[in-house]
Write a protein that binds this DNA or RNA. Structure first.
Lengths: 352, 352
DNA sequence: AAAAAAAGTTAGCGCGCGTAAATTTTATGA
DNA sequence: TCATAAAATTTACGCGCGCTAACTTTTTTT
């Protein structure tokens, strides 16, 4: 029954049964359509889509996921969402997953190992088709993550945990550190490395090692300034550590390479407070470089010279590998611990 | 059958039926327990929890949500997650919801109105118990949000849309702008207002109005510098607009009040590039103040003087109201458009 | 101690969909 | 044209849990 003035407001569709009846197609075929529109005949598809416009029905997610063997959702877990770097890479990943026909669920561990495990436990209940995981790193419960990866197809990115997960996508810290150190040495004094004493992130360790290697190759003695701090508030850590390092004259040269941009932002604030002019011009007392090309690095004073991580590529490749992994899970083929590292690019600004 | 050395590895529990049998309790009672552990007798609860330790069973979320009238999840929608301000307030909200026994699902509209609607559509499918929504503002599809709020208990925060949602929690822009303008006038020249021409956020309009009001009351002519930009990359907008404004000498006084901190961060970068020393000391050409006490405002050069939003209070109150709303939804009582505004506090740093 | 209240048990339906097997219809091509 | 393959349909069952009613047991009250 249709009332004048009600437009398309026909009967309310409550479930797939009713929708199938209204569209003149059997329910199993409609179900097939929703699982893969291309799996039904063109004429059938058109009839369903015509009905779809009239009734705007959408299948019940819970009922779908309860019965499907393969849930059409992928989980995304990042270590610290309040860091715009992770917010942006998560967003890029989300886009790609949705474009591939998956739902997405974004979780942040907020720097807490317990929360990381809780996130994985909760994810497991959702029976996701796959998971993209950027672990906390050192603080992560390796065993728990290993168990999780045994159950769920998982691709790790950003922070590597050796031999965990089906693949790892990240940056080549060796290449990027060599790049920036080489640049700094060519244009001025060799850099000191400014880093946390017990870094949460394994990248920091690789950067440390890469720094030692490149300095040795260039024939300079390594100068490392390690600062305290064990949470994810890197700006605050860099600021406090920077103040101390400046006061105690711990920087052996006038050039500092920070283990990451957020630390550098803190150091810039400390240098400003101490009246040290940062940059490479006349009258500058300090050169400061970072790593990552953080979204805010363009807007520091002075703008931060750094090495970019190609996070668009990291995101794209991570999703690509996960999807193929999900597919091979269905077909039964086996893939193993693939590692993909992308090169960083020098981003020259004013700070060094 | 129990194998030596296997420890607790007893039979695998597949569903609540099996778990109930293993724990010696009937399934309906176990179901009651999972819906509210306090609803069963203490001795029963202890028996269930003992079994829980042996088998680590957890009910199937999809089956639960399919049959429950009230899903134990709340949705959180923020306009732009790459802004640490929203990331942190979202986290605070998450904590509170989880503590209250709810699952949480975090979505970001990423500055795109279409995505905001999509988020709400997807949320609706999840039949959440309630939603905490920080809308995009001007760009939001008011009708769509209204429809959503008619179906789902929703509390709006941060950005108000008049007469939409059951409640709104935010900051008192009138109070906070008066506070900072008054401070700036007492300590130097009266401020110009630095804002976007067509701000995405309704708070910006209220701050504009509040600026006019307080300047009038203090007997100063208002000076407004409006800049172009219509996305959420406020730092970039503030930077470009700041460069132009400085070049064309559009600031009538030496003091600038930015509509928000991210704009201020951009302006600081522009001032630095133009060689304008920012601060309130001798030799400073410009005073810059912001609004919000953004997580990064402490680390700008110079550190940014601003007005803090009490986002802990905003988060707490939003959740509190939503939960009572959900509860009254069950009991049938009716509440109406409550509005709660929190005062800002002056955060004096070095930039003004 | 008996009576009342509370908690637990048994039994069974329903939710909305996936999926498999068997059957019928439609498209393909020689 | 007809045999054959491909697609769609029908039929039927199962997923894991919420929820209710009627009944039984345990606990609390007086």
């Amino acid at each position: 029954m249709s009332f004048p003035g009600e437009g398309m407001a026909e009967q309310k569709i409550r479930n797939m049964e009713e929708f199938a009846a209204a569209s003149g197609i059997s329910r199993p075929t409609v179900s097939k359509y929703f699982n893969d529109p291309a799996s039904v005949r063109r004429t059938t598809r058109e009839r369903i889509e015509a009905a779809l416009e009239r009734f705007d029905y959408r299948p019940n997610i819970y009922a779908m996921n309860q019965n499907r063997r393969l849930t059409k959702t992928v989980g995304i877990v990042v270590p610290y969402l309040a860091d715009p770097f992770f917010a942006e890479i998560a967003r890029t990943i989300e886009r790609l997953c949705i474009a591939a026909g998956y739902r997405t669920i974004l979780l942040s561990s907020h720097g807490e190992p317990a929360l990381e495990i809780e996130n994985l436990d909760n994810l497991r209940l959702l029976r996701p088709a796959g998971v993209l995981l950027a672990p906390l790193g050192r603080a992560s419960d390796r065993t728990a993550i290993e168990r999780f990866c045994a159950d769920v197809p998982a691709v790790l990115f950003d922070s590597r945990i050796d031999d965990v997960g089906e693949a790892f996508i990240g940056s080549d810290n060796g290449q990027s550190i060599a790049l920036i150190v080489d640049y700094l040495c060519r244009t001025g004094e060799p850099p000191c490395l400014f880093e946390m004493k017990t870094p949460a992130n394994p990248n920091a360790r690789k950067r440390h090692a890469a720094y030692l290697a490149i300095m040795e190759r260039l024939g300079h003695p390594p100068q490392i300034v390690q600062i305290d701090g064990h949470d994810w508030e890197f700006e605050a850590i860099g600021y406090r550590g920077g103040l101390q390092a400046i006061e105690r004259r711990r920087f052996a040269t006038d050039t500092v390479l920070c283990s990451n941009d957020r630390l550098a932002i803190g150091l810039l604030a400390a240098a400003y407070e101490k009246g040290l002019r940062v940059g490479r011009g006349h009258g500058c007392a300090l050169r400061v470089a970072g790593h990552d090309d953080h979204p805010f690095a363009r807007f520091t004073c002075p703008p931060l010279t750094t090495v970019s991580q190609d996070y668009a590529a990291i995101a794209a490749r991570s999703v690509e590998i996960l999807l193929s992994l999900i597919d091979s899970e269905r077909t039964g083929s086996i893939s193993s611990g693939k590692v993909v590292l992308f090169d960083g690019k020098l981003v020259m600004r004013q700070s060094a």
